[in-house]
């Protein structure tokens, strides 16, 4: 349902030349996140990964994407939520930022939404968000009466430097 609407929107907006950015939205836990479509190279179904020992728990391992070996992370764990067992709806969004490729394991794909820069509000300082997710969210957009938390793909890909502050953070909703 949501997909149909957003697709319709895409078509409509193509006619009008507007400076709007498209975001791929996905569901993880009870939140809907969005990541700029420019950075999404493809969406694949969940596939078995190879674990890499001695890595952070959110790094699930490596998958083989047509001969290319890419790391996958579980967005739930990354954002400090409870992990969920993977099912049919589980998908992997492959994002690419400046040559670095990363797979995001998400609960499910929502669709594509568009926001102009003016429609994106800065993230609230106090929110229902888990603290760990907060540092990846650069803005909030609203569409269809739902809040979409827009992620900064740059930070997702280069977050290895900020590992210190994770773990043992409260995880309330």
């Amino acid at each position: 349902m949501a997909e149909e609407i957003s697709e319709q929107k895409v078509l409509d907006d193509k006619a009008v030349v507007e400076e709007k950015k498209q975001y791929m939205t996905f569901r993880s836990c009870d939140e809907v996140y969005g990541v700029s479509l420019e950075n999404v190279s493809e969406i694949i179904g969940f596939q078995q990964y190879t674990e890499v020992p001695e890595t952070e728990d959110y790094i699930k391992g490596l998958i083989n994407l047509r001969g290319k070996i890419i790391p996958v992370i579980d967005v739930r764990i990354r954002f400090g939520k409870e992990p969920l067992s993977y099912n049919d709806r589980t998908s992997v969004i492959v994002i690419q930022v400046k040559g670095t490729v990363l797979g995001l394991i998400v609960d499910g794909i929502e669709g594509v939404v568009e926001f102009g820069d003016s429609e994106v509000a800065p993230p609230p300082s106090v929110s229902s968000l888990a603290k760990q997710a907060q540092k990846f969210v650069f803005g909030i957009g609203k569409s269809d009466g739902e809040v979409k938390l827009l992620l900064d793909p740059d930070k997702l890909v280069n977050d290895n430097d900020a590992e210190d502050e994770e773990k043992d953070e409260d995880e309330e909703e």
Partner: peptide, 9 residues
């Protein structure tokens, strides 16, 4: 190993 994953001994 992709650079995202830090060096594993």
């Amino acid at each position: 190993i992709p650079s995202y994953i830090k060096k594993v001994p």
